[in-house]
Design a protein around this nucleic acid. Structure first.
Lengths: 205, 205
DNA sequence: TCCCCAATTGACCGGCCGGCCAGTTAAGAG
DNA sequence: CTCTTAACTGGCCGGCCGGTCAATTGGGGA
């Protein structure tokens, strides 16, 4: 079954995970069979059981790996400490939007996980959102953003818009008058950022 | 199998549709079995095939019915002609948010349909979004909303936020600092509506 | 009244599902 | 070199899947 002459359990696990990842994200957990995963990863069905234990355990492993990668990437993004403010928030939104645009699979993974009530990633997400909200709060305290809105809500808003844009992309692509990714992001930033400015800036601007 | 002594094919179809609706929305198409649907609707499996033809056809019937109801409800909402403006838009957002809050199933249905690439509802949605965008454009032309954003994008933004809020509700409910439905909606409206005001109003406000 | 046709039933089918197990093979430690 | 251990294989199993079909039932029109 293996192409390579030598045994490489690490590589085998990797190949299984990759095949399972692709199939689960395309068709959802229930619609994928172990036989498909075995065939795509050039491995025996029994070997998948040997390495991962079962279908559910494999799905958990796939999610765990994907969530971990997502978490590390976003954490790195957030840890680039700049002085908080409107510009930082805007750049954060842009980077998040572009991250989802370049990693469409992660959106589908989260969506599947939400639909089936998975909570295994909640604590990781909590931490990221907490970090983002902290930045917003700092900007509010510095008078750079309006202070009468909940920072967590602000983060949730932009995550929602970015996520839903790519989640429903195929669906609303042909809505009448719909623009490109960049055009939509631009319009969103116009509305969102100006809606977040503090009163004084709005009067001055 | 039937509780009632008399035969009533209309009621039977209805019961099957209702049972299938609930199960498909909870677990997704692939994870539901015809036997489950038969059991929940107190009907023989064969009878489902008799009335609907097969599992896929039943799923299509479920989606069609749900989409039609959604479309009719939203159309009615939109056809209540008021003079367009910021207040109309705000009320529209509030009503849409409350509609999703009171009909959480429809959110899941759309999400499942999107994930499996269903396009059967696109044209209905197109029409609704078109109507909403038209209202926004009228408000822009009347100088009541800023004119430098795409009306379709504006509609997409608030649909995205409302949809994603209920879609991921269980997931982000325990994010640190997250408020209630109403608190989130309030904050969103603050940011969204003020971000949409035309320049003159912002200076004046 | 009876008779036709749709509604409804239960038994049945081939096929595929996830999982298991006994056996084989190779790598690496002693 | 050998022996232990884990990687890996192929075949098999019970069970459930969606779907079919012949038979039965009951309601409404002629």
């Amino acid at each position: 079954m293996n192409d390579t002459a030598t045994r490489d359990p690490e590589l085998t696990r990797e190949r299984i995970l990759e095949a399972a990842h692709g199939l689960f994200i395309d068709k959802g957990f229930a619609a994928v069979t172990m036989r498909e995963i075995a065939q795509r990863s050039n491995v025996t069905k029994s070997l998948i059981h040997h390495h991962f234990g079962g279908k559910e355990a494999l799905w958990d492993a796939v999610k765990e790996q994907a969530f971990a990668r997502y978490y590390l990437g976003q954490k790195e993004e957030l840890d680039q400490a700049e002085k908080p403010g409107a510009e930082l928030l805007m750049n954060g939104v842009i980077r998040y939007f572009e991250f989802l645009r370049d990693n469409p699979k992660v959106v589908r993974l989260f969506t599947w996980a939400h639909l089936e009530g998975d909570k295994s990633c909640s604590h990781l997400d909590s931490e990221l959102v907490g970090l983002g909200a902290k930045r917003v709060r700092q900007a509010q305290e510095a008078g750079l953003l309006r202070a009468d809105v909940n920072p967590t809500h602000v983060v949730t808003m932009f995550i929602s818009v970015c996520t839903n844009w790519f989640e429903s992309r195929d669906h609303h692509r042909d809505w009448p008058g719909m623009g490109s990714d960049d055009e939509f992001l631009n319009d969103f930033l116009k509305v969102f950022m100006e809606g977040l400015l503090p009163r004084s800036d709005r009067i001055a601007g």
